[in-house]
């Protein structure tokens, strides 16, 4: 049966299966890919280093908004000293991983998909196969690992800058006591909260990188095909991030 004649659920199942098979091809090639560590380091820089500016700017503004909204809410209960706790927990457990992943999908994810898609459209992947070089090992795996490693690092930077933004508004503008801001934060934030954020960002990094490289590798080798693949990356990653976030949040709350 052709793909066009399939019902939507069957097509979705088929696509999930294809992504799973592709993930297996990547996993099998991860160890061999470490024979060329320079390729992986370059892709960590591509996915992470080149996303730094947008992540830091977004983190700062999100933190500042948290500072404003948090202060407005907490002062109604006379608890404005807890602003640091509210901002830190909000950033570490939710906003940090989710917003970082959404920005990552828009910046690095689209870049990965279009780069691999264009390599396919210009016969570069076929040329590699003709040189007896597996494109999955040399092109896909380094980019997948680059995203996988970069995401938690970007998340940490986002949270750090965000907390600085919240402190900037809360302490410098709204007059919250510096000592109260930081001591309450230090006392209330547990290791579990940090781990939750790290696990989420690792899960988002895996999902986004996988979808981005899958879509690029399977893009139709035309300008339109690459454009469609790039769009699918953003849409699929965004929905997946929010779905995984819900599932992980529910799981953490159930087990805590």
């Amino acid at each position: 049966m052709s793909a066009g004649a399939e019902s939507a659920p069957v097509a979705t199942l088929r696509r999930i299966g294809a992504v799973a098979v592709f993930l297996w091809r990547i996993v099998v090639q991860i160890v061999p890919a470490f024979a060329k560590p320079r390729l992986i380091v370059a892709q960590i820089y591509n996915a992470g280093g080149r996303s730094l500016v947008i992540i830091m700017m977004s983190g700062l503004f999100v933190g500042m908004v948290l500072g404003l909204q948090g202060f407005d809410l907490l002062q109604r209960f006379g608890s404005e000293d807890a602003l640091g706790v509210a901002a830190a927990l909000g950033l570490l457990k939710e906003l940090g991983p989710v917003v970082t992943a959404l920005l990552f999908a828009g910046r690095a994810g689209t870049s990965l998909t279009s780069e691999i898609g264009l390599m396919k459209a210009t016969d570069q992947l076929t040329a590699m196969q003709m040189m007896a070089v597996d494109p999955v090992r040399y092109v896909v795996v380094p980019r997948f690992l680059g995203g996988f490693v970069a995401m938690p690092l970007l998340n940490a930077i986002f949270c750090g800058v965000g907390l600085f933004g919240a402190q900037l508004i809360g302490v410098s503008l709204m007059g919250v006591d510096t000592g109260a801001f930081w001591s309450q934060t230090q006392g209330a934030v547990r290791l579990d909260d940090v781990v939750e954020g790290i696990i989420k960002s690792v899960a988002f990094g895996t999902a986004c990188s996988l979808i981005a490289v899958y879509e690029g590798y399977h893009a139709a080798p035309t300008a339109e095909g690459v454009g469609l693949a790039t769009t699918r990356t953003v849409v699929t990653c965004s929905v997946l991030i929010l779905l995984i976030d819900y599932m992980l949040t529910a799981a953490f709350l159930t087990t805590s």
């Binding site: 390599m119 016969d123 570069q124 076929t126 040329a127 196969q129 003709m130 007896a132």
Partner: peptide
Amino acid sequence: LFALRRRMGMLFQNGALLT
């Protein structure tokens, strides 16, 4: 197949250089 292709060289229409 990979062993066979190591004994072949191919020149593509557009060169297909790694950009």
